[in-house]
């Protein structure tokens, strides 16, 4: 990435969806694993979350939506959310909410003996 201020932060602030500060990570999953173009991916995620596409980039709205659905939230000094889903825990919820298999979740479940792989209405198993 190079210089983090000149490259990644500049692009994030100028045009990015903000990752898990909002819903950028969720829209990214639909692009990566389903090849959805941006507008289709935004509409799909907004529909699954029950919000508008504009809400997807609003950290104020998404902070509450992510808490309600257990999708993981960014930790800050005073707010660690240790009693809520994060990382692999949150990805189990994301898989369910977006109705897509997530590869790391499927591997975790299989290796921990947590049951059969998820079969998605959106299409097939992970990996």
């Amino acid at each position: 990435m190079g210089d983090p201020v000149g490259m990644s932060l500049a692009h994030t602030l100028a045009s990015g969806m903000g990752g898990m500060r909002a819903a950028g990570d969720l829209v990214a999953r639909m692009q990566m694993t389903r090849g959805m173009r941006l507008s289709e991916a935004k509409e799909y995620v907004a529909g699954r979350l029950g919000v508008s596409t504009l809400d997807l980039v609003d950290p104020v709205v998404m902070h509450d939506v992510r808490a309600e659905l257990g999708l993981g939230r960014i930790t800050v000094q005073e707010l660690t959310y240790a009693d809520q889903p994060y990382a692999i825990e949150a990805k189990f919820r994301i898989s369910e909410v977006l109705d897509i298999p997530i590869n790391s979740v499927e591997r975790f479940a299989a290796r921990a003996g947590l049951g059969a792989p998820r079969v998605s209405a959106a299409g097939g198993a992970a990996g």
């Binding site: 990435m1 990644s8 994030t12 903000g18 990214a28 941006l38």
Partner: peptide, 30 residues
């Protein structure tokens, strides 16, 4: 707004690559 894919995330100055990834996830909105 659009999706940023962050090819080559991290800057190799935080001590471990996992730490770099966490920093990009949390501090840079990747």
């Amino acid at each position: 707004e659009v999706i940023l894919s962050y090819d080559g995330s991290g800057n190799a100055d935080l001590g471990s690559r996992m730490t770099e990834m966490l920093a990009y996830q949390t501090h840079q909105g990747a």
